[in-house]
C-alpha cells in the first residue's frame, strides 16, 4: 500500500524547538519515523547528534539515550523484559542511531540483536560522517569526500577507500537473514513513512537505512538539505529499495540517472573532486559500479 500525503499520521510526537543545526536532516527523518510509529513507542537512542539535539524533552514518547555502541543490546533487554512481564504487545521499540553508531562502533551489537531475532525497528540516519564530534570519516563516508580526518592536501585527496568497499548496511543486515530491511531518504518522506510502517508490522528485527545529507558536515546551504537528498537518489548515489524475506525490490526507481556532478557540486566536501575531471570521472565510475552491482541483485 502506497502512503499518500493525506494518509500521513497527523499526530506530532516531537515538541516544537530543538537543538539541531539549521537544515538538519535528522530532525526531519526522526519526526516522520515517529509519526509513522505512533505514541506507543519507546525510543532507544545511541549516542550521536540525535541524542544531543533532542535533549530537554523534545520527544513526546519515552526516550532513552544509551551509550554509543550498545543500543541494540539495550533494546534486546527491553524486548525480553516486556515479554516476561506480559507487556510486549502493542509497543514499538525503535532504535535510532547514526552511521558511526551503526556501521562502526555498534556493528557487533546490532549483528547480535538481529541474529537473536529480537523484535525492534532500527533506523540509521546516515550522514556519512561523525558529525557529533565535528566531521570525521566513518565506514560510510563516500570515496574522495573531504572530512576532518581525511583532509585534502598534497598527499591526500580525501577519503581513500573506494566506493565499492563502503560499508553497505542494508546488505549487511540482509546477510543476517533479517525479515525486513530497506533504504530510505529524508528527501522522500512518504516513502520513508511507508518503509517504517511496514517494518513496524514485522515481528522480529527490521533495519532501515535513511540517507541524511548534513549541511554542516558536507558544506552545503542549509536550504538545500532536501534537494541534496533527492539528487543523491536521482544520481544513483543512493538506491531506494526494500528487502523482504531476502527478496529485493526497488521502491523508488530512477528512469534516467543524472550525472553525479549535480549532486556533488552542492557540497564543499567534494569541491576538489568537482574541480578535477579525473577525480570526478573516478567518482562517477564508482557510483556506476555500485549501482549496477545493486541492481543486478534485484528480484
Amino acid at each position: 500500500m502506497t502512503v499518500r500525503l493525506k494518509d500521513l499520521p497527523t499526530e506530532e510526537l516531537l515538541h516544537k524547538g530543538n537543538l539541531a543545526c539549521a537544515g538538519c536532516p535528522e530532525m526531519v527523518g526522526f519526526r516522520h519515523v515517529l509519526r509513522a510509529l505512533g505514541p506507543e513507542t519507546i525510543v532507544i537512542n545511541a549516542t550521536g547528534c540525535l541524542a544531543v539535539i533532542t535533549q530537554m524533552g523534545v520527544p513526546k514518547v519515552p526516550h532513552f539515550h544509551v551509550l554509543f555502541e550498545n543500543a541494540p543490546a539495550v533494546v534486546s533487554g527491553i524486548d525480553d523484559a516486556l515479554r516476561v512481564q506480559g507487556r510486549r504487545e502493542g509497543v514499538n521499540l525503535l532504535v535510532v542511531a547514526g552511521d558511526g553508531g551503526t556501521a562502526d562502533i555498534g556493528l557487533g551489537s546490532l549483528s547480535g540483536a538481529i541474529e537473536r531475532g529480537q523484535d525492534f525497528v532500527y533506523v540509521c540516519f546516515d550522514n556519512e560522517m561523525y558529525m557529533n564530534t565535528g566531521g570525521q570519516r566513518s565506514g560510510t563516508t563516500p570515496y574522495l569526500a573531504r572530512t576532518t580526518t581525511t583532509p585534502v592536501g598534497a598527499e591526500s585527496r580525501g577519503e581513500p577507500r573506494t566506493e565499492m568497499r563502503r560499508k553497505d548496511m542494508v546488505e549487511i543486515a540482509v546477510a543476517h537473514g533479517i525479515p525486513y530491511a530497506a533504504s530510505a531518504s529524508i528527501g522522500y518522506p512518504l516513502d520513508l513513512v511507508e518503509r517504517v510502517e511496514k517494518a513496524a508490522r514485522v515481528r522480529g528485527p527490521t533495519y532501515i537505512h535513511v540517507h541524511s545529507p548534513c549541511p554542516t558536515g558536507w558544506g552545503m546551504d542549509p536550504a538545500k538539505t532536501v534537494e541534496a537528498a533527492q539528487l543523491a537518489v536521482k544520481t544513483g548515489c543512493v538506491v531506494l529499495y526494500e528487502v523482504e524475506d531476502g527478496k529485493r525490490r526497488i521502491t523508488r526507481g530512477v528512469a534516467r540517472r543524472a550525472p553525479v556532478e549535480e549532486y556533488l557540486r552542492l557540497q564543499s566536501r567534494f569541491r576538489h573532486v568537482v574541480a578535477d575531471p579525473v577525480a570526478l570521472a573516478e567518482v562517477q565510475r564508482g557510483v556506476d559500479e555500485r549501482y549496477a552491482a545493486l541492481l543486478a541483485r534485484m528480484a
Binding site: 532507544i44 532513552f64 544509551v66 551509550l67 555502541e69 550498545n70 541494540p72 543490546a73 539495550v74 533494546v75 534486546s76 533487554g77 527491553i78 524486548d79 525480553d80 523484559a81 516486556l82 512481564q85 507487556r87 557487533g108 551489537s109 549483528s111 547480535g112 541474529e115
Partner: peptide
C-alpha cells in the same frame, strides 16, 4: 555476543 552487550541488555531490562 559480548559482555558489553550482556550488561547493556540488563540495563534495558532494568529500565522497564
Amino acid at each position: 555476543e559480548s559482555e558489553h552487550s550482556a550488561l547493556s541488555a540488563c540495563c534495558g531490562a532494568s529500565a522497564v
